[in-house]
Computed example of a mutant assay.
Amino acid sequence: MSLPTIKPSEARRLLDGGAVLIDIREADEHAREKIPGARHMALSSLDEMDVAVHHGKPVIFHCKSGVRTLANAPRLAGKLGPSCEAFVVEGGLDAWRKAGLPVVTDRRQPLELQRQVQIGAGSLALAGTLLGLLMSPWFFVVPAFVGAGLVTAGVTGFCGMAHVLMRAPWNRVVYGSPMRAKKA
């Protein structure tokens, strides 16, 4: 069973009536930017989700763009059970913001881990390419290594650079100790 989508304005109306809003993004994403009052239940922890969270009220799920939530809607609906009325915010947090609805941003929190990986991989590839062109062709090993790492991450779901970045000092706010996300 999939979940119907609703516009952010309709979600706001349901929330004003007592509905429960659940943010399924990861801890680093939720820490940086969130809809006020949204409960954080990361999709990666779906198996541990408390099914009684809604107490008979409608449940509204959201992610950043809506794509992740829609892709996992059957799992989310199955976790809540057939008697629970549930929805997905069409366009997610991005559409919520575009609709002029309130969003809390904490710029003291680090960038989302995915963005850190993109910046790191892009910087290494660019630097290696420039050094390969200007200094020595041996530097072309760097972008080749980065490319192999990205392919490996895409195929296996394991990203070595993300695991290294999780341990970086600026990410300790969100991750505490390595591999353990801070509860929001």
Rank of each mutant, 00 (worst) to 15 (best):
S2N: 13
S2W: 04
L3K: 03
P4F: 06
I6Y: 01
I6M: 12
P8K: 09
S9E: 14
S9H: 11
E10K: 13
L14H: 08
G17P: 01
A19C: 07
L21C: 08
L21R: 00
D23R: 01
D23G: 14
I24Y: 04
I24T: 08
I24V: 15
R25H: 11
E26Y: 03
A27P: 14
A27T: 04
D28V: 11
D28R: 04
D28F: 08
D28P: 12
E29H: 10
H30C: 10
A31L: 06
R39T: 00
H40C: 04
A42G: 15
S45H: 03
D47C: 02
E48Q: 11
H54C: 15
H55E: 04
G56Q: 02
K57M: 13
H62G: 03
S65G: 15
S65W: 07
T69W: 03
L70S: 11
L70R: 08
L70M: 14
A71Q: 14
A71K: 12
N72I: 02
P74G: 07
P74L: 10
A77H: 13
L80W: 06
L80N: 03
P82S: 14
S83F: 09
C84N: 02
F87A: 05
G91Q: 07
G91I: 03
D94Q: 10
A95I: 00
W96V: 00
K98V: 02
L101T: 02
L101R: 08
P102T: 04
V103R: 04
V104E: 15
D106I: 05
R107L: 13
R108C: 03
E112A: 13
E112L: 02
E112I: 01
Q116D: 13
V117F: 10
Q118P: 04
A121P: 07
S123E: 03
L124Q: 09
T129W: 09
L130G: 12
L130W: 01
L130F: 09
L130S: 08
L133E: 02
S136D: 15
P137Y: 10
F139K: 06
V141A: 15
V141T: 13
V141Y: 12
V142S: 10
G147T: 15
L150Y: 07
T152N: 13
G154L: 10
F158N: 06
C159I: 05
C159N: 08
G160M: 14
H163W: 07
V164S: 04
V164P: 03
M166H: 03
A168F: 10
A168G: 05
W170A: 10
W170E: 05
R172K: 15
V173G: 07
V174F: 07
S177K: 10
K182V: 06
A184I: 01
A184R: 06
